[in-house]
């Protein structure tokens, strides 16, 4: 009996040591995860001289000059504005058309449904580089280069398969009786979609908005290929341009620009952590 207790005590002592070690490892992991961003933020408030004399020091006071320089001289404001417009327009198209798709595939009679479903999903097997050049030629042919359409439709095209899978699964779980009874009450197909389905799938629309929003906001390759007008550059393309200007505008304005670009989703995440996590988890479906 006594022996038993001592054993237990010894074991729990070992366990405490282990959990202390685990805690230290976790602290180290958290440091590695967060420090690069924290370091960039700290540098963004320093003067160029402070930064060059020591990269480890804290800023002596909060210099916002770097931000002003980044926004004005380095065109960060233009890039940011373009990205907001592109993302908002893409999201509008994403949400409206994907809701239509979901309703059609989940709740409506459709001849050749399977065929059309795979026509939309097949995109998941086509790597973007294949269509990069022909899509660019297409955009030039249509005369829409450097317009919103040349950004929004290709982004929608890329997001539609995942969006369709997610919203169809979600709508499949909504009982058909709701729709049947609305039909009895004389609601037409589109009325049911708008005033019954849309409110019911709101949580999924939020998920799609987060996933599609991150897609559109962060996209790089297509923006790099298709946008030739520098005044229409997106943040992704623009930030790389700003980074290459270190020699002329100095390091610290570049840190300010990086801070602004990096913090957008970090801030959204901090305010809506649960929604964000739910959305990203939902998005982890394989095609």
């Amino acid at each position: 009996m006594k022996n038993d207790r001592r054993n237990k005590k010894e074991r729990s002592g070992g366990r405490n040591q282990i959990s202390a070690a685990v805690f230290v490892i976790m602290l180290f992991a958290a440091l590695i995860s967060v420090y690069p961003l924290v370091w960039v933020i700290l540098q963004s408030f320093k003067t160029e001289g402070e930064f060059l004399s020591s990269i480890w020091s804290l800023p002596s006071s909060l210099h916002f000059d770097n931000y002003i320089k980044a926004f004005e001289e380095a065109n960060l404001l233009t890039y940011l504005k373009n990205t907001v417009i592109n993302t908002a327009a893409t999201l509008a198209v994403d949400l409206v058309l994907i809701t239509c798709l979901g309703y059609a595939f989940s709740k409506l009679k459709m001849k050749f449904k399977k065929f059309f479903y795979y026509v939309i999903l097949i995109n998941m097997l086509i790597p973007t580089p294949i269509i990069l050049l022909p899509m660019y030629l297409q955009v030039v042919n249509l005369g829409i280069q450097n317009t919103l359409a040349a950004i929004v439709f290709p982004y929608y095209q890329g997001f539609a398969p995942l969006g369709l899978i997610l919203i169809k699964n979600y709508m499949d779980n909504i009982p058909n009786e709701i729709i049947e009874s609305a039909k009895m009450d004389g609601c037409g197909t589109y009325r049911i979609l708008w005033s019954i389905m849309v409110p019911l799938v709101k949580p999924m629309l939020v998920t799609l908005a987060i996933l599609g929003g991150m897609n559109a906001w962060n996209e790089y390759m297509w923006a790099l290929v298709s946008i030739s007008d520098t005044s229409r550059y997106t943040l992704s393309v623009g930030i790389a341009v700003i980074r290459d200007k270190i020699a002329t505008i100095g390091y610290t304005p570049v840190f300010a620009a990086l801070t602004v670009s990096a913090m957008v989703f970090v801030v959204i995440y901090l305010f809506a952590q649960k929604t964000f996590v739910r959305s990203i988890t939902a998005g982890a479906v394989k095609g």
Partner: peptide, 11 residues
């Protein structure tokens, strides 16, 4: 630990 995923690949 989740922070790195919130920053775009370009940044």
């Amino acid at each position: 630990l989740f922070i790195p995923y919130l920053i775009s690949m370009v940044v």
